[in-house]
């Protein structure tokens, strides 16, 4: 089974991950990759985020989400990478890569993994701005997105 889940402080290289996904004996006709970035959509005051993680639970949680997605969407390879620690604006936070026979299952699998990751995997973001530090609050829109899959 081609599932790969990693939690790391270090950055990742999307082209390397893309190559790794492609090194599969199973036939596939689609590769979907998603990268989530640190963003500042408000007022350009964001300097960094601190990503805290309950690592042993996060590993279990991401593996469980990946296994569920793998079985549900008939994909060939599924890779999930989530970073921790201090990240700057535009830094990469999370990677999801999927190979599948067809594009629909690859897109759906990546969406499913992100929707569950954002609502179940134990990571917490703290935003450090030029004026203060504050913990990011859960968004109801993320929970609503996840419920679509139920």
């Amino acid at each position: 089974m081609g599932i790969h889940v990693v939690i790391q402080a270090a950055d990742f290289d999307v082209s390397h991950e893309y190559q790794t996904l492609g090194n599969s004996d199973e036939p596939y006709g689609a590769i979907v990759t998603f990268v989530g970035l640190v963003r500042d959509f408000s007022d350009q005051s964001l300097q960094a985020i601190e990503l805290e993680c309950y690592e042993s639970m996060a590993q279990k949680s991401l593996e469980s989400i990946a296994e569920t997605a793998y079985d549900r969407f008939d994909v060939s390879q599924l890779s999930v990478i989530h970073r921790t620690g201090r990240l700057l604006v535009s830094d990469q936070i999370v990677f999801v890569g999927v190979t599948a026979k067809h594009r629909r299952s690859a897109f759906d699998c990546a969406n499913f993994v992100m929707d569950f990751l954002k609502t179940e995997a134990p990571f917490w973001k703290k935003e450090i701005t030029t004026t203060d530090e504050h913990w990011v609050e859960m968004k109801e829109s993320d929970s609503a997105r996840r419920r679509i899959w139920e």
Binding site: G36, L51, C53, Y54, M57, A58, H82, I93, V94, M114, L117, K118, T119, E120, A121, P122, F123, W124, K125, W135, V136, E137, M138
Partner: peptide, 10 residues
């Protein structure tokens, strides 16, 4: 046993 607020990763 771990206690925590709603998660906000990704």
């Amino acid at each position: 046993v771990a206690f925590f607020p709603p998660v906000t990763g990704g």
